[in-house]
């Protein structure tokens, strides 16, 4: 499982990660990720047959809060950090229509 990654792998993972990668970066990323994955592959040698995966250190059971309505953050407060606003809405590029990516 510790086979070297290809440039195509890097581009694929970057796409899944929603990260634009310049052609000049691909080779360095491939080398670094291959080296890290090579180390991580030590996990393959660990006997894990029948071991139940543990996603969390606590035995968590769903915890329900009281169903009490409370005031929420004012929209104005929320929008203070927004990069682009039109009226009281977040502005985004065109999603539908010609040239759109949807």
């Amino acid at each position: 499982m510790s086979e070297a990654l290809s440039d195509a792998d890097i581009r694929h993972v970057a796409k899944l990660s929603r990260l634009r990668v310049e052609d000049s970066q691909v080779s360095a990323m491939r080398t670094q990720l291959t080296s890290i994955l090579g180390h991580i592959s030590k996990l393959q040698a660990l006997p894990t047959e029948g071991v139940e995966p543990m996603a969390h250190p606590m035995r968590i059971v769903n915890r329900l809060g009281e169903d009490e309505p409370k005031p929420c953050m004012p929209v104005e407060e929320f929008l203070k950090n927004a990069p682009a606003v039109v009226d009281r809405f977040l502005a985004v590029p065109k999603v539908l229509g010609e040239g759109g990516g949807a």
């Binding site: 929603r18 634009r20 985004v92 590029p93 949807a102």
Partner: peptide, 20 residues
Amino acid sequence: IRYGHRASLAPGDDLEDLYS
């Protein structure tokens, strides 16, 4: 979209380009 850095887009860029 909601907060944090937003890149400037080139003509023809779409939502995916904005994210990445």
